[in-house]
Amino acid sequence: MKILVIQQKMIGDVLTSTIICEALRKEYPNATIDFLVNSNTKSVITENPFFDHIIEFKNEYQNDKKAFYAFLKEIRKSKYDHVIDVYGKLESNLITLFSGASKRVSFYKWYTQFFYTKTIKRNLVPITNASIAIENRLRLVFPENRITSEITRPKIFLTKEEKEKAREFLESNGIVAKTPLIMISVLGSEMRKTLPFEYMAEAIDAVVKNTEANILFNYIPNQEKDARTIYNLTMPKTQRHIHFDVFAKSLRGFLAILSHCDALIGNEGGAVNMAKALDIPTFTVFSPWIHKKDWNMFEDGERQTSVHLSDYMPELFLNKSNKELKKNSLELYPYFKTELFIKQLHNFLSKNL
């Protein structure tokens, strides 16, 4: 049997969807399993043993119809028996259709259901602490009565060489294991997913005062200016603990450095999911428009903790649609003052460092 799993979204979505491949490997141990992802997310799933091949969806397939059609023909030639489309957008609809697979599964949408032989309706309420994101993905493989018994965590696999190289890199920058090391996810993927800069700076000040830890900033190159702004808002004593220019030049390098951290703190996003997949404790700050129950994977209030403005001011969210919350997230964020969650942050640090 040949199986294709499709997930063309961001890093966090791709990483979370690896549990589908793991579930399939358990269910069909002799099958060939391929995982189709966008090229820029490939590094997060390298070395994963639960699928046989990574199929890259390159940028040119989105921009060049001829290139996309050539790609579809290659998919056809692969003769898949079973396709699980986690993405569920036009590109993956067509990939699924062109595969010619006799079994084609995806999440239910009334306008695309005809592409598939089976569709699954997403549950809106979690039944475990794994989160809706985990549970709904498992529904693409298992019947409802098996979901709770088949819960598994996404995992990242690093080589010994990658970890050792990261350790040497940290030591060359004066960062040694005897001092706690904390990664700060200072910025979200967009401003609507980013705690106000001054509040983040206050949180970092509190972390350093509480732990005397070394601090690394997680940001991508085009966010450097904003990350520097947050750095400048922290107290001078805090700045002496921040290694602003110590960062990896690749995603695999970042993962290897993250594996040496004692905790990750900051905005919800891919870095949080990666930390959890490396079994690193996380303290996550959710955007006002993101439903915490969708992505607070395996939260236990100790190693994995998260906060949301609705935890403190539920009245701001009464009778508000997700569309309204997303539109007004920048107006809601100023209410999310550091003082609201500082006690929980201190508790998290005391339990994990």
Results as ranks from 00 to 15, higher is better:
Lys79Thr: 04
Thr152Arg: 14
Ile120Glu: 13
Lys109Asp: 09
Lys160His: 07
Thr128Pro: 06
Leu97Arg: 01
Leu140Met: 09
Ser106Arg: 01
Lys118Ala: 09
Pro143Leu: 13
Val141Ile: 11
Glu150Met: 15
Thr96Ile: 04
Thr112Phe: 07
Tyr87Lys: 00
Leu94Lys: 03
Val141Thr: 05
Tyr80Leu: 07
Lys79Tyr: 07
Glu161Cys: 05
Asn93His: 13
Lys118Gly: 01
Arg122Ser: 13
Tyr87Asp: 04
Tyr108Trp: 04
Thr159His: 12
Ile120Ala: 12
Ser102Glu: 07
Glu144Met: 15
Ile95Lys: 02
His82Tyr: 15
Ala101Gln: 12
Ala101Leu: 10
Tyr108Glu: 05
Ser131Asn: 11
Lys118Ile: 02
Lys121Val: 06
Thr159Leu: 12
Ser149Pro: 02
Thr159Arg: 13
Thr148Gln: 13
Ala101Pro: 11
Asn129Trp: 00
Ser106Ala: 14
Asn93Leu: 05
Leu90Glu: 06
Asn136Thr: 06
Glu161Arg: 10
Thr117Val: 15
Arg153Lys: 15
Lys118Thr: 06
Trp110Gln: 04
Tyr116Ile: 10
Glu144Asn: 15
Tyr80Ala: 06
Val83Gly: 12
Ile95Glu: 02
Arg122Leu: 09
Thr159Met: 14
Val141Glu: 03
Ile156Leu: 15
Val125Glu: 14
Asn123Met: 14
Arg139Phe: 03
Trp110Arg: 11
Lys103His: 07
Ala101Lys: 11
Lys79Gly: 01
Lys109Ala: 07
Pro143Ser: 08
Thr148Ser: 09
Leu124Lys: 10
Asn129Pro: 00
Ser92Val: 00
Arg153Ile: 05
Thr112Trp: 09
Pro126Thr: 14
Ser102Arg: 08
Tyr80Arg: 09
Arg139Tyr: 08
Leu124Pro: 02
Tyr111Phe: 10
Leu90Val: 10
Thr148Asp: 06
Glu135Asp: 06
Ser106Lys: 02
Arg139Pro: 05
Arg146Trp: 03
Pro143Ile: 10
Gln113Ala: 07
Asp85Arg: 00
Arg137Ile: 07
Ser149Ala: 13
Leu124Tyr: 11
Leu124Asn: 12
Thr112Cys: 14
Ala130Met: 00
Phe114Met: 13
Arg137Ser: 11
Val83Asn: 14
Val105Ser: 02
Asp85Trp: 01
Leu124Ser: 08
Glu135Lys: 04
Leu97Lys: 01
Thr117Met: 15
Val105Thr: 10
Val86Trp: 11
Arg137Leu: 14
Asn93Met: 04
Thr112Arg: 14
Arg146Leu: 10
Ser149Lys: 09
Tyr111Arg: 06
Phe115Cys: 04
Val141Gln: 03
Ile156Trp: 09
Val105Lys: 01
Tyr108Thr: 08
Leu94His: 06
